[in-house]
Simulated scan of single mutants.
Amino acid sequence: MNVFFIRHGESMGNRQGKIQGWMDFELSELGIKQAQLLAAYSENLALDYLYSSDLTRAYDTAKAIAARNHLDVRKWTKVREVHLGPLQGLSRPDIYERFPETKERSILTSGLDGTESVEQLTKRCRFVVEQLLLAHQNDNIAIVSHGGFISILLTYLLAGEQWPSLHRAFQIGNTSITHVEWTKEQKPVIHYTNQTIHLSSLLEPSNKIGLL
């Protein structure tokens, strides 16, 4: 089974510097362009199925992929972004001012009242992996999700239930692709993370040196 975890295109929340969580934002103009370039590139992935978070920024990104690959988008709430409760809609400086304890911890796993707990996130990661292995052992799957959740899921794949003890070392950019293959022994192999080669045409000419 090959799974391509894809972050949504730039959203209006990203552009405004807001921590989004479960807040719903549309794609920005740049995000729409990113999604279109991603969709064209996705034709190389030979996808069999396409899942998406139900939040607009992810679902609209997935719809662009679906149109180029003649697939239906299956909404899956389990791959939503981390629920961040009182932090949602705030900028990082505002969060650090109102909740100074977050300076010492990750915003995604702060433990603040009203945010998704480590235990809940662990359960969600376990469920996603179990369901994929149950339904798609021989398929190529794309899942359009969110930067925070994808980085946590990758850390879970490395460490299982002990993932909270690790530093999350994954950078997940807008419309980046992360390829994970599960072997016949149902062990994950991470081929690459955060690939954004499809966005090269958006770079300024002076920044393209060295891309080849």
Results as ranks from 00 to 15, higher is better:
residue 167 H to L: 13
residue 160 G to W: 00
residue 196 T to N: 11
residue 171 Q to I: 11
residue 186 Q to M: 13
residue 167 H to Q: 13
residue 143 I to A: 07
residue 190 I to P: 05
residue 123 K to V: 13
residue 127 F to N: 15
residue 160 G to C: 08
residue 196 T to Q: 15
residue 197 I to F: 00
residue 138 N to C: 09
residue 124 R to E: 09
residue 156 Y to A: 03
residue 175 T to F: 02
residue 150 I to T: 05
residue 121 L to A: 06
residue 159 A to E: 12
residue 142 A to W: 02
residue 174 N to Q: 13
residue 159 A to R: 13
residue 157 L to N: 03
residue 186 Q to F: 11
residue 123 K to L: 15
residue 184 K to S: 14
residue 169 A to Q: 15
residue 112 L to T: 11
residue 140 N to L: 04
residue 130 E to D: 14
residue 183 T to S: 15
residue 127 F to G: 06
residue 113 D to I: 14
residue 158 L to P: 00
residue 132 L to K: 01
residue 137 Q to I: 06
residue 195 Q to T: 00
residue 194 N to K: 06
residue 155 T to S: 14
residue 144 V to R: 01
residue 153 L to G: 02
residue 187 K to Y: 09
residue 115 T to R: 00
residue 195 Q to S: 11
residue 195 Q to V: 01
residue 157 L to G: 05
residue 143 I to C: 07
residue 115 T to H: 00
residue 189 V to R: 12
residue 179 H to Q: 14
residue 136 H to D: 12
residue 129 V to F: 13
residue 149 F to K: 02
residue 169 A to M: 11
residue 148 G to L: 02
residue 116 E to M: 08
residue 180 V to W: 04
residue 158 L to H: 12
residue 120 Q to I: 06
residue 158 L to R: 14
residue 194 N to F: 08
residue 114 G to W: 01
residue 194 N to E: 07
residue 151 S to C: 08
residue 160 G to N: 05
residue 147 G to W: 01
residue 194 N to D: 14
residue 151 S to T: 08
residue 194 N to H: 08
residue 113 D to W: 00
residue 174 N to M: 03
residue 152 I to E: 04
residue 136 H to K: 02
residue 127 F to T: 15
residue 151 S to N: 03
residue 173 G to M: 09
residue 165 S to C: 07
residue 114 G to R: 05
residue 189 V to A: 04
residue 121 L to P: 03
residue 117 S to E: 07
residue 182 W to F: 15
residue 155 T to D: 13
residue 191 H to L: 10
residue 123 K to D: 10
residue 169 A to C: 10
residue 142 A to E: 05
residue 158 L to A: 11
residue 147 G to L: 09
residue 140 N to C: 10
residue 143 I to K: 02
residue 126 R to T: 12
residue 119 E to A: 15
residue 192 Y to P: 06
residue 129 V to C: 12
residue 156 Y to L: 08
residue 132 L to A: 05
residue 132 L to C: 08
residue 149 F to T: 02
residue 190 I to K: 04
residue 114 G to Q: 07
residue 192 Y to C: 06
residue 148 G to Y: 03
residue 122 T to R: 11
residue 194 N to G: 06
residue 187 K to W: 08
